[in-house]
């Protein structure tokens, strides 16, 4: 894996660093940027971000591993994050997970063999009034039934 920011990403990185009085504070935004560029955060990406911010790999890993959104392992192209905290659980989150298991064959933390789809149960997404809610990559899909989820996934196609 060739790990280096594109020119545009490097420009963005420099803008990020300028917002803070020290480089360490730019770590979370820099990791978000790296994840956007490289799809996930392998060792090389963490090490690269560390070099840019003058931080040892160990400290980058220490921070990155604390946060659930930083992918230290690859996920599917479409990453289903099903909220299963109380309000969503009361309104059918369990049925969504059961449906994904039955129809697409993946359980919590699993990816389909073709790498298209992955599922993870996540904690409260802060959208309890429109439960159940599933975040697919960056986008929220709210007030969702299993059938609606199927239609959304069909819409992605490729």
């Amino acid at each position: 894996m060739n790990i280096a920011f594109s020119n545009d990403a490097m420009k963005e990185f420099r803008e990020i660093v300028a917002r803070y009085p020290n480089k360490r504070a730019a770590l979370l935004p820099a990791l978000h940027l790296a994840q956007r560029e490289f799809a996930w955060l392998p060792y090389e990406a963490l090490e690269y971000v560390g070099r840019l911010l003058e931080l040892p790999y160990s400290e980058v890993y220490d921070t990155a591993s604390f946060y659930t959104m930083f992918k230290l392992k690859p996920t599917g192209k479409y990453h289903l994050q099903v909220c299963h905290t109380l309000s969503c659980a009361l309104r059918g989150a369990g049925a969504i997970c059961d449906h994904v298991k039955e129809k697409y064959g993946i359980g919590n933390g699993e990816t389909t063999p073709d790498g298209k789809l992955s599922l993870v149960k996540v904690e409260c997404l802060g959208s309890c009034g429109t439960a159940p809610v599933v975040q697919i990559n960056d986008d929220y899909y709210e007030d969702l039934s299993p059938e609606q989820l199927d239609r959304i996934l069909e819409g992605f196609k490729s």
Binding site: R24, L28, P29, L31, D62, T63, Y67, T68, F70
Partner: peptide, 25 residues
């Protein structure tokens, strides 16, 4: 500036938020 967290309930606690903003756990 907008500063994005990365998935951790504890960062809503004000000193947890401060540590997170500094680029730490």
């Amino acid at each position: 500036y907008v500063h994005r967290g990365a998935g951790a309930y504890i960062c809503g606690e004000e000193t947890g938020l401060i540590e997170s903003l500094e680029g730490k756990r």
